[in-house]
């Protein structure tokens, strides 16, 4: 009997607490910074595509909803010829973001992308690319990698010595 009254009292007190329910869509949601929503592809600080088409996101994807094809530009820089995410399969787990070695693929706060037709949930590279570096404003993979692909010369990366002179006999 006492416990019933205590419960009723508890429920009664809740009437004076602040509301947890948000009146979406009239009211905007303030979601946490690490919220995992719609996936985007970002650009590096030089304004070029960050994605180097390494296939790690597609390999990490548990529902296999990422398909891409690598291509090379005249300098040998790798980029995705096409990059497709089937959002109708995507579970927004964020494994692709974790796997990405260049911070190209990122999950955003946007989740408002429902469609009546599943075919409209298939996003191509044009739909995914944004015009900035996203969450990681400074990182530029090709400034760290050893390959020279038009971004810099051999041995000009961070933490690199100038190229060895193979013909030198000096010790």
């Amino acid at each position: 009997m006492l416990s019933i009254l205590r419960t009723l009292w508890g429920v009664f007190l809740h009437m004076f607490r602040s509301r947890e329910t948000i009146q979406y869509p009239e009211q905007n949601i303030l979601d946490p910074p690490r919220f995992r929503g719609r996936i985007i592809l970002s650009l590096d600080p030089d304004g070029q595509e960050r994605c180097v088409a390494c296939y790690l996101c597609s390999a990490a994807c548990p529902v296999d909803c990422i398909a891409l094809q690598a291509a090379q530009d005249v300098n040998g820089r790798r980029y995705p010829e096409f990059f497709r995410i089937n959002f109708s399969r995507c579970i927004l787990c964020g494994f692709c973001e974790e796997a990405c070695p260049t911070y190209a693929i990122q999950l955003t706060n946007d989740f408002e992308f429902s469609e009546y037709d599943r075919n409209n949930m298939v996003y191509e590279k044009e739909d995914l690319l944004i015009s900035g570096p996203g969450k990681h404003p400074d990182y530029n993979f090709f400034r760290v990698a050893g390959v020279a692909v038009g971004v810099k010369g051999k041995g000009e990366s961070e933490n690199e010595l100038p190229p060895v002179d193979v013909r030198s006999l000096l010790p």
Binding site: V63, D64, C65, A67, L68, R84, R89, M121, E124
Partner: peptide, 16 residues
Amino acid sequence: PRYSGRTAMRAHIDVF
């Protein structure tokens, strides 16, 4: 076993 893209490679033609 790690073959990727199964649900996306044909998605531009048909999502099913």
